[in-house]
Design a binder for these strands. Sequence first.
DNA 1: TTTTATTTTTAGATATGTCTAAAAATTATT
DNA 2: AATAATTTTTAGACATATCTAAAAATAAAA
Lengths: 217, 217
Amino acid sequence: MSQAEENYLKAIYTLQTEFGKSLSTNIIAAKIDTKASSVTDMLKKLSLKKLVIYKKYQGAHLTKKGNDLAIKVIRKHRLWETFLVNKLDFNWNEVHDIAEQLEHIKSDVLMAKLDAFLGHPKQDPHGTPIPNREGVFPEIENDYLSNIPTDTLCILVGVKNSSDVFLNYLNSKNIALNSTIKVLSVEPFDKSMLVEINNKQLLITGEVAINLQVIKQ
Amino acid sequence: MSQAEENYLKAIYTLQTEFGKSLSTNIIAAKIDTKASSVTDMLKKLSLKKLVIYKKYQGAHLTKKGNDLAIKVIRKHRLWETFLVNKLDFNWNEVHDIAEQLEHIKSDVLMAKLDAFLGHPKQDPHGTPIPNREGVFPEIENDYLSNIPTDTLCILVGVKNSSDVFLNYLNSKNIALNSTIKVLSVEPFDKSMLVEINNKQLLITGEVAINLQVIKQ
DNA sequence: TTTTATTTTTAGATATGTCTAAAAATTATT
DNA sequence: AATAATTTTTAGACATATCTAAAAATAAAA
Ligand SMILES: [Mn+2]
Ligand SMILES: [Mn+2]
Ligand SMILES: [Mn+2]
Ligand SMILES: [Mn+2]
């Protein structure tokens, strides 16, 4: 498995959970930031290796084997991100690109030992679930701040959106993992919220609230 | 810098310290386990990038720039090996191949943080010196067991030879880093030694003794 | 249901890194 | 100094992964 092949499998996996079964070359190309013709070439190769089902002009989707491999790469990516934040003191918005490289290191023993070293984490630094060695994702209650009633104390355990622009917004407001959040009031008109974070009041939009994953205290 | 280029620079660096200035394509090919014709191609490319001085039929050697880059890759390799042994509980004979991959991860911040996390180690798990961020190798006293007088307690801090076959020999005799060693007697004829390691007597050849790096207690 | 627009695939090119076999240069031997 | 042996380079090929531009297929519009 080359790095390029692994990146394709990961992209197809992610797009499948978003758009369902069959993916067009254009959608994959957009995700990987390449050209549709390159995607066609790669889909032929992955098809020969029985990692995707691909028929001309009909799009592609992962086989069981391709799915398993994609999940394995995703597991590696998230374990490395966890290592970078929890052990090396990186900020949560600095780790994605490095993990994008580290996810391609080939050694099952390494990942087993890293997993143990990290204490078998169930979520990466963005709160996203980490599949176990068998490829099974842990069940994580998805409680979002937008659903929390007023005056309930809760703790930030993840973000639905882990884009750089959103993480930077959170950083600028000193909102971090494990921040304590209390909803003070909700504006019915647009679902914007007045919340208390780190003993300071802050107004956030509904769009922000639906992207903050929390657990009640 | 591609992985292939980095591996070439590292190989040329190591060979230079062993054989001096100018290296033949054959010697490099043997080190990297490739063909001389491939080496010729790569030397041309590295020469264009001003990383090596290369003249047809005259061999090659590193420029300052090439030397610095080689040392940087070596630093990464040894820091990762240290991480694998000290943090992930790998055995010292299991880490080389994984480090061979990890050394190509591109991120200066990552290496700075890993270095700090490991406590700025001066030696890798085989006792080999780790250059600092400026590429300077720490001075390490090279006392070998072969030079230690009888009845002197010392501690194993490194091996001159870190090949798999030697490390496996040491493992089989329960000789590990930080083992306490006392020379009981030396046979003048062949420099073989009777030593006490971990409260057990053991006969080792002179060849073994000159490969064990120790400090007196 | 034709025509038009869009998507997808093919054809051909480029870049990297490797190989084999033949040619050229260097080194060693008579 | 000429010949032989060895080393090194070149020529040409292959595999991977990407691109542009043209052709083919599909989807949308008239
Ligand atoms: Mn990520
Ligand atoms: Mn990647
Ligand atoms: Mn090593
Ligand atoms: Mn390497």
